[in-house]
């Protein structure tokens, strides 16, 4: 599904990603771990197409299609979804209205008519029940005055609504207490299927106790320093990132 080859990217003169190779197949969950500043969030942003970053070398493709020339919204239309580490506030725009716009814009890009209101309503009902979201929440302004947990849960609600092929969760666990973490993780687990793939970006192993990954990759200084199964996360937790650092140096 997702194929990243020798990806180099950065901001102006600063190199952040220095040759990433990653293949994600349908049905898989990949975790990307690493210390602060290793390039985790940059990788997520580059896949999503954020223009602040310049791709200097290498390629990213989704289902065989090169993404280089595609604008962020076009990548979204192709089925890439990113759950933000810091979701932004949009005052006066309700969660429902935002989702309606997002879904209909994606449909428009595919040459489809707007989703009929009753269908939209059904979808909202279904997904909010699944994620135990109070309906009142949906009429509030997007992320405005939301607690950290509410913001992240809202991201997962959007993920559920958009039904993307590839979901990238950027530090979804940061700022969550254990109960909120469990709810968010349960939501993600319910959305796992053999047709979609999930990339979980996290600093701590904690989230991976709830969202069990098929593969774990450790990012260090812009490269994937080590890859393995879910046990790698536990090993990291135990030994800390210094261990990787030493391994890389050796």
């Amino acid at each position: 599904m997702l194929e990243i080859k020798d990806l180099h990217a950065g901001v102006e003169d600063k190199k952040i990603l220095k040759g990433i190779n990653l293949t994600v197949n349908p049905g898989e969950v990949h975790a990307i771990m690493g210390p602060n500043g290793s390039g985790k969030s940059t990788l997520a942003s580059v896949i999503a197409g954020k223009e602040d970053f310049e791709v200097k070398k290498g390629s990213i493709s989704l289902e065989g299609e090169d993404l280089e020339e595609l604008a962020p919204e076009e990548r979204a239309h192709k089925g890439i979804f990113m759950s933000f580490q810091y979701p932004v506030e949009i005052p006066g725009v309700t969660v429902t209205n935002f989702m309606k716009t997002a879904i209909n814009e994606s449909r428009k890009a595919k040459g489809l008519e707007d989703m009929p209101a009753n269908e939209m309503l059904k979808l909202i009902r279904e997904k909010s029940e699944m994620l135990e979201i109070d309906r009142k929440f949906l009429s509030r302004s997007l992320n405005e005055g939301f607690s950290g947990g509410e913001k992240k849960r809202n991201e997962i609600f959007q993920l559920a609504m958009m039904e993307p092929k590839l979901a990238i969760l950027d530090e979804t666990d940061s700022g969550l207490d254990i109960d909120a973490l469990r709810i968010v993780a349960n939501g993600v687990n319910k959305l796992r299927s053999k047709d979609n793939a999930i990339v979980v970006i996290t600093h701590y192993q904690r989230l991976l106790e709830y969202i069990i990954p098929d593969y774990v990759h450790v990012l260090f200084d812009g490269r994937i320093a080590k890859s393995g199964g879910k046990e790698l996360a536990l090993e990291l937790e135990e030994k800390g990132y210094d261990w990787i650092k030493q391994e890389v140096v050796v």
């Binding site: 197409g49 962020p72 919204e73 979204a76 933000f84 006066g92 725009v93």
Partner: peptide, 18 residues
């Protein structure tokens, strides 16, 4: 907004309407 499939022009309209 872009990441949710909403292009820039539409995003501005959405933000302004809000």
């Amino acid at each position: 907004c872009n990441q949710r499939g909403i292009d820039t022009e539409k995003a501005i309209a959405l933000i302004v309407n809000g």
